[in-house]
Simulated assay, not measured.
Amino acid sequence: MPYGIVSAAPAYNIKLEKVNNNLRDLDSLQRGASLFTNYCMACHSVQYMRYNRIARDLGWTDEQAVEVMSFNQAKPVDYVLTRMDPGVSEQLFGIEAPDLSLLTRVKGNDYIYTFIRGYYEEEEGKWNNKVLTGTSMPNVLEGLKRHATEEEFDQATTDLVNFLDYVGEPSKVERWDLGWKVILFLLLLLTLTYLLKREYWKDIKH
């Protein structure tokens, strides 16, 4: 994922692609978690998430989450941390690979979606990105894109962003659902209060 992107100001002048991810789609979230494991965790962490929390929210058992995301190298209560040793990122790329826990909340889903799809080859073996020129992050999805159909690649990148969106605010769906319940309760309370007011004041002349 984009190195330095969390602290960098937007440096692009392009129209962002719309991702249209769905946090209620558990299959998409599970695929996104697997993609994150295979393409991102070599460098990046989501240090505020535990494997057992991901398992609970994505419909896995603790054992499934640990198997899929750590290849049975972690415990369910462990945080989801990069497999890269400290200092290696600076040696390879000149910058520490950032934690991605809050990336979508900082940059937005469409930005991340456009970024991971925005690589282009300037010359053989040298890649740049139309969203963040000069990014230190290599084109980690190059192989996936080469061997997938356009539809499959679209789905994969959507799934990946969907998972990062979930990681950024794991309780977002619960908050949405609770919000509607609160609004309905307040509307009911308002109605009852209005009817009670009319009953109290009906015999009072103005």
Rank of each mutant, 00 (worst) to 15 (best):
M1F: 13
G4D: 06
P10G: 07
P10L: 02
Y12N: 03
Y12A: 00
N13Q: 10
I14E: 10
I14H: 09
K15T: 14
L16E: 08
N22T: 12
L23D: 03
L26R: 14
D27Q: 15
S28Q: 11
L29G: 11
R31C: 02
S34V: 15
S34A: 15
L35H: 06
N38I: 09
N38C: 04
C40I: 05
A42H: 09
V46F: 10
Q47V: 06
N52G: 06
I54K: 01
R56E: 12
G59H: 11
T61H: 13
D62G: 04
A65P: 10
V66M: 03
V66S: 04
S70V: 05
F71A: 15
Q73F: 05
Q73M: 11
Q73I: 02
A74E: 10
A74Q: 12
P76T: 03
V77G: 05
Y79Q: 12
Y79R: 10
Y79T: 01
L81H: 05
T82F: 11
T82A: 11
D85L: 14
V88C: 07
Q91E: 15
L92R: 12
F93S: 02
A97I: 02
D99K: 01
L103C: 13
R105V: 02
V106G: 05
V106I: 15
K107T: 01
D110T: 05
I112L: 14
I112Y: 08
Y113G: 03
Y113C: 00
T114N: 05
T114K: 00
F115S: 00
I116V: 13
G118A: 00
Y120M: 00
Y120K: 01
E121G: 00
E121A: 00
E123N: 11
E124S: 13
G125V: 00
G125W: 01
G125H: 01
W127S: 00
K130W: 02
V131F: 07
L132P: 03
T135G: 09
T135L: 10
M137K: 04
M137F: 04
M137G: 04
P138Q: 13
P138G: 08
N139K: 03
V140T: 14
E142P: 02
G143T: 03
L144M: 11
K145F: 08
R146V: 00
R146H: 12
H147P: 01
A148W: 09
A148H: 13
E150H: 12
E150T: 12
E151Q: 14
E152Y: 04
E152W: 05
F153C: 00
Q155G: 10
T157Y: 05
T158D: 02
V161C: 02
V161M: 07
N162G: 13
F163L: 02
E169R: 09
P170R: 11
P170T: 06
E174G: 04
W176Q: 06
D177K: 15
G179K: 15
G179R: 15
K181T: 11
I183D: 04
L184C: 14
F185D: 02
L186R: 12
L187Y: 07
L187P: 04
L188P: 02
L188M: 06
L188D: 10
L189P: 01
L189G: 09
L190N: 11
L192Q: 14
T193Y: 08
Y194G: 12
K197S: 09
K197H: 07
R198F: 08
Y200R: 09
W201F: 15
D203W: 09
D203Q: 10
D203G: 07
I204D: 06
H206A: 12
